[in-house]
């Protein structure tokens, strides 16, 4: 099996707090990590390799420092890593990201399975997996919690949907996005860390994957983030007073009048 795992480098914490004096965001420890969901994607790839043999190629598109995420992935069991990095890739929305990743995956053909995380904890869209599959014209299944069967040309997976589990058969090559229930990621081995240090990681540009600069990055992105703001957490609360019976009655009628009960 040849497996490709797509990972994104994200800030370690998505917690944003407000400085009450300046009314701006406080972000401490902007250390970068592999998107947590992607560590499950990687682990699943490595588990499959250990069971069936093959190779795991890990790929990311990001700034030059995204190389660290790839090195971490090698330490966790990936065999090869590829970095898509170029100023022209910057500012991509999910469409431009997926187009670039798909073009790079094509250069790695033939492959059996692409594994993505459920979503990135910063952008939170969960769109890159299905969009990559569409660009590659392969089937995809999202929210996979278990790979039940896997053989050349065919897989059976369990997929979590609202209040139910679907069992889905798919032809391969195909793409899955995985949820945290799927496995328990390992910690890097000493051997892996050594290997990661020595690894050479090729860096690909739009030209390397055969794409003109107008279709990647900011210029290739139909959507634009116009503005961001911090949702208001402070509320003007009402204090309800009285005997337990009185406060219970008042609370229930308040909740009813604001339409939440």
């Amino acid at each position: 099996m040849r497996i490709i795992v797509l990972i994104k480098q994200v800030p370690e914490s998505t917690e944003v707090r407000i400085n009450p004096e300046t009314n701006t965001l406080i972000r401490e420890g902007v250390k970068s990590i592999i998107n947590p969901f992607d560590t499950y994607a990687l682990e699943e790839g490595v588990l499959i390799k250990e069971r069936l043999g093959g190779t795991v190629v890990v790929m990311t598109m990001g700034p030059p420092q995204a190389r660290e995420a790839l090195q971490d992935a090698i330490a966790l069991g990936a065999d090869e890593a590829i970095l898509l990095s170029d100023r022209a890739f910057a500012g991509a929305d999910t469409l431009a990201t997926s187009r670039a990743l798909a073009a790079a995956v094509r250069k790695l053909e033939p492959y059996d399975l692409i594994i993505c995380g459920k979503q990135a904890i910063d952008g939170d869209t969960a769109q890159v997996g299905p969009e990559v599959a569409e660009f590659l014209d392969i089937p995809h299944v999202t929210y996979v919690r278990k790979v039940r069967e896997l053989e050349p040309g065919r897989a059976v997976v369990e997929r979590m949907v609202e209040g139910a589990v679907e069992t889905v058969e798919m032809s391969l090559p195909g793409l899955i996005t995985v949820v945290k229930d799927i496995n328990q990621p390992r910690i890097p081995s000493l051997k892996g860390i050594m290997k990661a240090r020595r690894a050479t990681i090729p860096v690909w540009t739009p030209a390397d994957v055969g794409l003109p600069e107008e279709v990647v990055g900011l210029r290739g992105s139909p959507t634009a983030v116009e503005k961001v703001f911090v949702p208001q957490v402070e509320r003007r609360g009402e204090v309800i007073e009285g005997s337990p019976e009185e406060v219970a009655e008042v609370l229930l009628s308040r909740l009813q009048s604001v339409g939440v009960l």
Binding site: D93, T94, L95, S98, R99, D124, T125, A126, Q127, V128, G129, P130, E131, A133, E134, F135, H140, V141, T142, Y143, R159, M160, V161, E162, S221, P222, T223
Partner: peptide, 22 residues
């Protein structure tokens, strides 16, 4: 939903248009 977030990106990529999530 699980379906919408799986189907809509496929369609958006096919049409080459933008998709805003959730």
């Amino acid at each position: 939903t699980a379906l919408g977030r799986s189907l809509a990106p496929r369609l958006a990529a096919r049409l080459g248009t933008g998709l805003t999530a959730d």
